[in-house]
Nucleic acid binder design. Sequence first.
DNA 1: TTGTACGCGTTATCAG
DNA 2: CTGATAACGCGTACAA
Lengths: 355, 355
Amino acid sequence: MDDGRPPGQAAGEDGRKRRARPGEGAIRMRDVAERAGVSAMTVSRALNTPDRVSPAIRRRVEEAVGAIGYVPNRLAGSLSSSRSNVAGLVVPSIRNTLFSDTIQGISDVLHGHGYHLMVADSAYSPQEEEALVTAFLAQRVAGLVLHNTTHTPALRALIRRSGVPVVENGTLADDPLDMVVSYSNVDAARAMTLHLVRLGYRRIALVTLPLANNERSLERRRGHAAALAEAGLPADPRIMLEMPPGLPSGCEAIMRLLEITPAVDAVFFAGDVLAVGALLECQRRGVAVPGRIAIASFDDVDLLRHLNPGITTVRLPRREVGRRSAEILLDRIAGRSQERVRVDLGFEIIQRAST
Amino acid sequence: MDDGRPPGQAAGEDGRKRRARPGEGAIRMRDVAERAGVSAMTVSRALNTPDRVSPAIRRRVEEAVGAIGYVPNRLAGSLSSSRSNVAGLVVPSIRNTLFSDTIQGISDVLHGHGYHLMVADSAYSPQEEEALVTAFLAQRVAGLVLHNTTHTPALRALIRRSGVPVVENGTLADDPLDMVVSYSNVDAARAMTLHLVRLGYRRIALVTLPLANNERSLERRRGHAAALAEAGLPADPRIMLEMPPGLPSGCEAIMRLLEITPAVDAVFFAGDVLAVGALLECQRRGVAVPGRIAIASFDDVDLLRHLNPGITTVRLPRREVGRRSAEILLDRIAGRSQERVRVDLGFEIIQRAST
DNA sequence: TTGTACGCGTTATCAG
DNA sequence: CTGATAACGCGTACAA
C-alpha cells in the first residue's frame, strides 16, 4: 500500500508498442538508470563490475536501486550473456537422509560463489534422470551434479552435445560422463568384509538394497564377493539378501538369516539404515550382538555411534563429496580447469562394539 | 580460444549457417524451423500447444527436434512470456532430515506439473533468508515456499512488491506473508503436555532447540506452558532446557535433568532427535523408561517406533505439508485462486511405551 | 569512464 | 492453421 513510486518512472513512454502484460509494472534497469540520471549500461556496470564505474555514479545507482526496489532480472542477464548462475542436481531420492549431507556440501560451496541449486529426484529411474537433465539443460544450468552413474544412452549423448560440465557422485565410475568425485564402493565393501574376516568371522552374510538401477549396491556386492574369495571363504548365495530400504527391512533380514543359516556369525548391511533395524530387532529378541551375531553397516549415520553396542561401519565423506563436486564444477565453469578430474575421497572403517 | 572445430567444416550440409561463434553451437528454435520447413513460431506452437498445429507439421517438427537434438531455452521463453516454471524453497537447514519429507512432497507435486525447484538454506538467519529470496526473485521464480515465518521487514516489503505467491510452512503464523500450510506448534505441544498430565505425570520437563530465530521452538514452549497452567502444575524454569540439535544433546539433557531435579518424572523433547539421544543414554545407564522417567518426542521420525520402548510423539504431516504447499502455490500461479489460503493440517499424538 | 547499437532465443500479437 | 514482427530485459562490443 505504501508504494512510493516516483511519477517519473511511470512507464517507458518512448512511443513503441508495448505488450499488454499481466504482471505489475516490473521495475527494469532502465528505470533505475532514469532515476540515477545515467544510461542503463552504466547501471549494469555499477551492479556487476562496480570498480569500472566512478564512485560518485556508483553511489547514485545504488541509491536509485534501493529507492525503487530494483531486483535485476537474471533471466534476461543469463540469456544475454549466455552465462547462468544455477547448477542442477539429480539425486535418486530427496527424502533419503544419506544424500542430504552431500546436498548441503554442494549448496554451501555454490552459494559461497553466488550460484544457486536446482534439485530434482529421479526415483532411481534412468529415464526419469534423462528427463530431469533435459529440463535442467533447458534452464541452461551452468553445471550438473548427478548421483547415479548409470545413464541412458540418450542422456550420455545429451550431455556430450550440450557441453555442460558434469560431476558424478555415487561411485568411482569406470566410464564417467565427465568428472567424478566419490569413493570406491567396491573397495569399501571389500575392506569391511576383510575387516570382519580379520576379526575372526567366517560366515559373513551380506544385505544390500535392491540391485536393479543401483550400481552402488552392485559394487558393494562385488567388493564383498572379492573379499570372501581372497579370504578363501565360500560365497553362500543363501546369505546374500536384497532388501528394500527402511528399518523394518533390517529387522526382517536378520531374522531370516538367523533362521535360514544358523551358522552365520556376522552380517554386513551394505546400505541404508538396515543395520539399525537389525540391531534393534536383536535387542528385542534378546539375540546377543556381537556374541551370537556381529553386525556391520555402511555409511556412518550419526545414530550408529550412539546405539548399544555401537555399530561398526564404513565412514563415507559425504559432505566433502558435495563440497569438492561443487568446487571442481565451479573451476570448470570459470574456465580455471579443462581436465576431466577424478577425485577419490576414500573411506574409513570405524570399528565399534557390534563386531 | 581453443575451439576444437576445424574452420573448414563449420557449415552444415543443407543450410548456410555462417555462425562460427566459439564455445558451443547452441541449437535454436530457428534451426529446427529450417529443418522442418516452417517458421520458428510454428515450432514454438508445435512444442507448447500441439493441438493448435496440424498433425502433419507437428510430426515434421517433432522429427526435426529429435534429429538435431534441440533443447528449448527456457530462459528465453520465460523472459518473453514473463512466466517461469521454477519455484524457490528456503529451509533453515538442508541437512536436517525433518525438512526432507516436506521437500519431497513439494518436489513431487511441482514436478508433476512441469515445475522445478530451487532449494536454498538460510542457516536459520533471517538476513540470509532475505538474500536468498532476493536471489530467487532475480531468477523470476513463479512462487516461493518458506519454512521460517520470522522475516526481516525488508523481506516482507520485497515479497509484497514483487507479488509472487508465497507459502509459509513452519507454523500457523499469526501474520502470514501470504498463504500458510502448516499445523499449530502451540497446540501440538500443549496437547502432548496435557497427554502426559493425563497419564499421571506431574513434573514434566521440556527440552527445546535454541529459541533464537526459531519461532517453532518458541511456540512449543508456549504450548507446554499453557498446558501446565491449565493442569494447575507449576512451571519450573530449571527444567526448561534449550539444547542444540543432535543426539548428544538429548543424552546430556536427560542426565542434567535427572541430576538437577530428581522429582522430574517426564521429559518432553520438543524437537529434533533429542528424545532418541535421551532414550539411548537411559538404556546405557540403566535408567528405566518409563519406570523412572517418561520420554516424549515431537515429530514422528521412523526410528521412534522401532526403539525399545517405542517413543511417544506428536506426528506431523510433513510430507502432506509439502504437497499441499505446492498445490496451492500452483493454484495461485495458474490463477485458479486468489485467496490467501490458510491450511491447518493438524497433528496426532502417538502413544507408545515410553510414557 | 560512459554511452549507443545490437542481439541473446523465445513468445504475444495480429495479419493472412 | 501459419507466419512476420516486435518486444522481453539485459550484456557484449565497440565508439565517444
